[in-house]
Design a binder for these strands. Structure first.
Length: 430
RNA sequence: GGGGGGUUACCGAAGCGGUCAAACGGGGCAGACUGUAAAUCUGCUGGCUCUGCCUUCGCAGGUUCGAAUCCUGCACCCCCCA
């Protein structure tokens, strides 16, 4: 199976500018680029797809360039957005660019000789321009009627002010595509990059770059897009009630990240395995079959979660996530130290109490539940215990008068309380 | 301006002098079941120093041995007639 047909099999090809041309291109090592918006200081699941596509290109012997949009981020890409975007400050952007670059380095190989990855920031070549130079050299090549025909522009101009917000778009956002178009030309000139990849919402920007290269340099460049990662119910992948799923362990813990993938619907998990993992087609098809025969086993979800957690958080992060999963779903908590517990229960609220309370037996399970915030009142705590819903270190506590002692410590200073199936809190005794 | 109805715990809604911390439904919590799904079933659902005590039925006052329930005033909401 050729590289391109593998991408196609995985469902990663939404559109290309020239199927045959790209197929021919990729017979030899080439340079490919994809852009990333520095709207936050961490990447999230939405941008994972792009990184993984670049990674596939690199594995196939091509040179990947990850472009961080330090300049375009100042303008705001109107593609796929229904409203004008708020502008970020230069300082925020700089911070975000640095953060993203650090994360990206985990996915790409910068030591691969002729096909070593590069991270570039388009502010480096866009920043020095003057407005007049830009208009004369770049703007001159863009017919307004073509710009107006782009979906990203059309959809915004056609908007009515029915939601009370101002419709249309600013001149600033309208100019966005010129900057991204020039990025492609610049990377072609500097790195010989002839292929740009992006999400399907980037089609208009990619073709703008191809047009510009033809006009400015007489060069034939190529583009391909991958589909946006959506769930079978039409909503975006990578969003939870509490917001985006981030790749930064401080924003989304390895456990939470693992759980997100472990809970993907049966209907979506096949696509995720194809698009987001580097498993061989045979293994993915085996998992498809297993899902048919034994959906309850959820082998697909487990494999997906393992693969992605290992990739994003390294084997150590996966180990924490797996251990946390065992514990959060009932395994008794013993033989751990404070540091391990801290990692496993990174997302769990904690409360500090005096160690003397363990010594004199003054803290009952009822008091502890209230102190930890797992019960609003002692009455509620009593009910929880009475109904068999109270646990210390995942061991059910029956006696309503049970007092906490040093024997209940799961580690040097921590007692793990739980109410019901999955509400946890830590008490630290120091 | 005249007449009528209403205001109950997280929400909706019964209760119309003692047996009311207040029926019932929803929600929530806990348990069972289960694929860490959905559905279902069971229990609980004001607080506390808990065989008792305290606070709650729009607000303030009154009648009564005793009031969410009766009376007076106030506030807000709804309907009908002008």
């Amino acid at each position: 199976m050729s590289f391109l047909s593998d991408l196609r099999w995985r469902g990663l090809i939404h559109q290309t500018t020239d199927d045959a041309g790209i197929e021919a291109q990729l017979q030899q090592p080439r340079t490919v680029y994809a852009g990333f918006d520095p709207t936050a200081d961490s990447l999230h699941v939405g941008s994972l797809m792009g990184l993984l596509v670049l990674r596939r290109f690199q594995s196939a012997g091509h040179k990947p360039i990850a472009l961080v949009g330090g300049a375009t981020g100042m303008i705001g890409d109107p593609s796929g957005k229904s409203d004008e975007r708020n502008l970020l400050s230069k300082e925020d952007l700089d911070g975000n660019v640095t953060g993203l670059a650090a994360q990206m380095s985990r996915f790409l190989d910068f030591d691969a000789g002729s096909h070593a990855a590069e991270i570039v920031n388009n502010y480096d070549w866009t920043g020095p321009w003057t407005y007049l130079e830009f208009l004369r050299d770049i703007g001159k090549n863009f017919p307004v009627n073509v710009m107006l025909a782009k979906d990203s522009v059309k959809s915004r101009l056609g908007r009515e002010n029915d939601d009370g917000k101002s419709g249309g778009m600013s001149y600033t956002e309208f100019s966005y595509m010129l900057l991204q178009a020039y990025d492609f030309v610049h990377l072609h000139k500097t790195y010989g990059c002839e292929l740009q990849a992006g999400g399907s919402d980037q089609w208009g920007n990619i073709t703008a770059g191809i047009d510009l290269a033809r006009r400015m340099a007489g060069a034939q460049l190529y583009g391909l897009t991958w589909p946006l990662l959506t769930k079978s119910d039409g909503t975006k992948m990578g969003k939870t009630e509490s917001g985006a799923v981030w790749l930064d362990a401080d924003r989304t813990s390895p456990y939470a990240f693992f759980q997100y993938w472990f809970n993907v619907d049966d209907a979506d998990v096949g696509g995720c395995l194809r698009m987001l993992t580097e498993l061989e087609p045979e293994e993915i098809e085996t998992l498809d079959a297993a899902r048919q025969d034994d959906p309850g086993g959820r082998a697909s979800q487990r494999r997906l979660a393992e693969e992605l957690t290992r990739l994003v958080h390294n084997p150590a992060g996966l180990a924490i996530a797996t251990r946390a999963t065992e514990i959060f779903f009932g395994a008794e908590i013993t033989n751990l130290n404070d540091a391990q517990l801290g990692q496993i229960f990174a997302d769990v609220p904690s409360r500090e109490l005096a160690q003397s309370q363990l010594a004199d037996g003054s803290l009952t399970i009822v008091d502890a539940l209230v102190e930890a915030g797992l019960a609003k009142s002692k009455g509620e705590a009593r009910r929880t215990v009475g109904q068999g819903g109270a646990y210390i270190n995942n061991r059910r506590i029956d006696g309503i008068d049970t007092a906490l002692t040093k024997d209940h410590l799961a580690s040097e200073t921590v007692v793990v309380l739980r109410s019901g199936k999955k509400k946890y809190a830590l008490l630290r005794f120091c």
